[in-house]
């Protein structure tokens, strides 16, 4: 039975059956590493992030990188055409990916991407929202919760201010955005389960 790695952070869902599990994993890691580095660079640019202790910077990035990538790469999910574009540039239909063994996670990613895209946020709004996603004081292993909480509150205030300024007649947008945070947590948990299944396999 052929194996597939149905993650758009891979160049392609097809896995070479001649390669060992370790080689497959190495190739996959090679594929997603640049995107992870971009998340770290993004984190560094958040005002106040570099003032957090090193341990907490790493903890926030470890816990939040997947969620930041989901937000940044929402455009890979074409809701209208029901296709996913992998990092290699090829589009695959949901049906094709389903036949490859994709899980409910894929459908949930589509739902999330659709709702986020429908909010019609500007690049600046999306960037600030992404900062709020990354700086969450309730991530596990945070040492200085107060510092992270203070930064989180500052970012949320800034996001509310920006949304209110840009969308004076659409006050629900800010609430809808905050409600995306638990959605992202849920996706993150589903993704972790998928990783476990893949590694065990």
């Amino acid at each position: 039975r052929r194996l597939h790695l149905v993650c758009p952070m891979n160049t392609s869902p097809h896995v070479d059956p001649q390669k060992s599990g370790h080689e497959v994993w190495e190739e996959f890691a090679h594929s997603f590493t640049p995107a992870v580095r971009e998340v770290v660079e993004f984190g560094k640019k958040i005002p106040g992030f570099r003032d957090l202790c090193q341990h907490d910077q790493v903890s926030l990035l470890k816990a939040g990188t997947f969620e930041v990538l989901v937000v940044r790469f929402a455009s890979l999910f074409d809701v209208k055409d029901r296709t996913v574009t992998f990092l290699g540039g090829t589009k695959y239909s949901v049906d094709t990916l389903r036949a490859m063994g994709s899980s409910d996670l894929l459908n949930s990613m589509f739902d999330f991407s659709e709702k986020l895209t429908n909010l019609g946020l500007s690049e600046e709004e999306m960037s600030l929202f992404t900062a709020v996603v990354l700086v969450s004081a309730d991530r596990s292993g945070i040492e200085n919760v107060n510092s992270v909480e203070m930064l989180q509150e500052t970012l949320i205030r800034a996001l509310r201010g920006l949304i209110t300024k840009n969308h004076p007649n659409e006050s629900a947008i800010f609430t809808k955005l905050l409600l995306k945070l638990p959605d992202l947590r849920s996706l993150n948990n589903m993704h972790s389960e998928q990783l476990l299944a893949f590694k065990v396999h």
Partner: peptide, 27 residues
Amino acid sequence: FSDPASNLGLEDIIRKALMGNLEERQE
């Protein structure tokens, strides 16, 4: 599987990417 980031090798990538910046701060 309580720490998927470590299992993915993410922690190593993150630490290396942060390192230059952190070294700058220490200086």
